[in-house]
């Protein structure tokens, strides 16, 4: 098998970590949102919008860090829209999320065609990366990937060890009980949904500002949905979502390596690998994994 020659383990691990970046960021966003009781399938749309907003800001200001900041803020704003629709106006959370996903594809797509596609706007360049010179082939790890890795224990700690986390879990399991304990359910849910927007927004910045320094239509390619699968497979915990992200990203990295190794196999089929794996894993995990009891249920004060 000639492709094994191309398969250096360290390089594969690094590639997996990089591919896992948007999954684990959006996945943790999903964890926070759903733990508070709001299903957030808008993660895909949030990432796409943030990818675009981050790119636009970086192009305009020639400052990549400002781009990251704008991507995060854009994510929070879109999430706030989801929160407003689903928490305030009691719109079905799936419908609200779907609307945002469609909106994101449409708006970023039309901006792309109008202002970017035929313009002289160049790339933004990419964010600095850690150069792992001690490894074979000396791979790079970008700052957003490093930030994601750092955030995993932090989000985990916030969810399971802090007052905010305890209240979040309470609202996602039994909002009326939380209310009778003197907790403002609306505030907790808003905070978490917006926080999930910030996390997914950072995940969106990964696509434009860390990966290619440019924007392409629909470049998130369903990673937001895979992140949801990672969240479910990871049993609604940040560490679990990370583990599941590694699995999906591993499939991604593996199929990528296989393609460049020149194995005689249709690359379209190899490209399907992460998605097929997602379907299989989710089909196996759903039903076994127990969602927060009030996940997806609007809370209405009497």
């Amino acid at each position: 098998m000639d492709f094994l020659g191309h398969l250096d383990i360290a390089g594969f691990v690094v590639a997996t970590l990089i591919a896992a970046t948007p999954l684990v960021l959006a996945g943790m966003g999903g964890v926070m949102s759903e733990r508070s009781g709001v299903v957030n399938i808008a993660l895909e749309g949030i990432m796409l919008t943030s990818a675009f907003a981050g790119y636009a800001a970086a192009v305009a200001t020639h400052n990549l860090w400002l781009g990251v900041l704008v991507a995060i803020i854009a994510g929070m704003l879109i999430a706030a829209l989801h929160a407003l629709l689903s928490i305030q106006f009691l719109v079905d959370q799936i419908v609200s999320g779907t609307v945002i996903n469609i909106l994101a594809v449409g708006i970023t797509g039309s901006f792309y065609r109008t202002y970017i596609q035929n313009s002289s706007l160049g790339g933004t360049g990419v964010l600095p990366a850690l150069h792992l010179t001690f490894l074979p082939n000396a791979p790079f790890i970008g700052v957003i990937t490093l930030a994601a890795l750092a955030l995993i224990p932090i989000v985990h700690f916030v969810l399971f060890n802090t007052v905010f986390g305890l209240r979040t879990r309470a609202c996602g399991e039994h909002p009326l009980a939380a209310e009778t304990a003197g907790i403002n359910v609306y505030l907790v849910r808003y905070s978490n949904v917006i926080l999930s927007g910030a996390l997914a927004g950072l995940g969106g910045a990964y696509f434009t500002l860390q990966q290619i320094g440019n924007f392409l239509p629909n470049m998130t390619g369903g990673r937001g949905f895979i992140a949801l699968a990672a969240m479910i497979f990871g049993r609604w915990t940040p560490v679990g979502a990370f583990g599941a992200s590694l699995l999906f990203a591993g499939a991604d990295a593996f199929s990528g390596r296989l393609q460049i190794s020149g194995v005689n196999f249709p690359y379209q089929i190899l490209g399907m690998l992460p998605y097929v794996l997602t379907i299989i894993v989710v089909a196996g995990a759903v039903g076994r994994a127990v969602a927060p009891a009030a996940d997806g249920k609007p809370y209405k004060k009497s």
């Binding site: 007052v163 209240r167 399991e173 039994h174 009980a177 304990a181």
Partner: peptide, 27 residues
């Protein structure tokens, strides 16, 4: 109908909303 949150511990349920915290918001 009890206002308890089944997956949380007894202590967590009791202090919920009136948490005892050390440092910045750590239970």
């Amino acid at each position: 109908h009890f206002m308890l949150i089944p997956p949380l511990t007894v202590a967590e349920n009791i202090i919920l909303g009136h948490e005892i915290a050390t440092g910045p918001g750590v239970v």
